[in-house]
Simulated assay, not measured.
Amino acid sequence: MIEQAIADAPALSARGVVVRASSLLLAFERIALMGLMYLLTALIMVNVVTRYSHFPIYWIDESAVYCVVWLTFIGASAMTRLRLDFAVTMMTERLSARNQKFARIVATGMVVVFGVALIITCFLWMDPIGLARAGFDARKLAAETFNFLYTERTQTLNWPTWVLYLTLPIFAVSMTIHGLANLLEDLELVPRTPPKGFQLSELDGVN
Results as ranks from 00 to 15, higher is better:
residue 45 M to N: 08
residue 25 L to R: 03
residue 172 A to D: 01
residue 38 Y to G: 15
residue 53 S to N: 12
residue 160 P to I: 01
residue 8 D to H: 12
residue 102 F to Q: 07
residue 68 V to Q: 08
residue 74 I to D: 01
residue 172 A to I: 03
residue 87 A to R: 10
residue 48 V to M: 15
residue 83 R to A: 04
residue 60 I to R: 06
residue 138 A to L: 02
residue 198 F to M: 13
residue 138 A to P: 04
residue 197 G to H: 09
residue 25 L to K: 03
residue 115 G to C: 06
residue 102 F to R: 14
residue 19 V to Q: 08
residue 69 V to D: 01
residue 196 K to C: 09
residue 121 T to D: 04
residue 71 L to P: 01
residue 63 S to A: 15
residue 67 C to T: 15
residue 87 A to M: 07
residue 85 D to W: 01
residue 202 E to Q: 15
residue 31 I to K: 13
residue 123 F to H: 10
residue 20 R to D: 10
residue 9 A to T: 11
residue 25 L to A: 13
residue 19 V to G: 06
residue 169 P to Y: 06
residue 40 L to F: 14
residue 150 Y to S: 02
residue 188 E to K: 14
residue 203 L to C: 11
residue 24 L to H: 13
residue 59 W to G: 03
residue 96 S to A: 08
residue 76 A to P: 00
residue 79 M to S: 11
residue 156 T to W: 04
residue 191 P to S: 08
residue 196 K to N: 14
residue 3 E to W: 12
residue 182 N to Q: 09
residue 198 F to I: 10
residue 204 D to S: 14
residue 43 L to T: 10
residue 67 C to G: 15
residue 192 R to C: 09
residue 181 A to L: 05
residue 11 A to C: 10
residue 138 A to R: 03
residue 44 I to L: 15
residue 60 I to A: 13
residue 13 S to W: 13
residue 201 S to V: 12
residue 15 R to W: 13
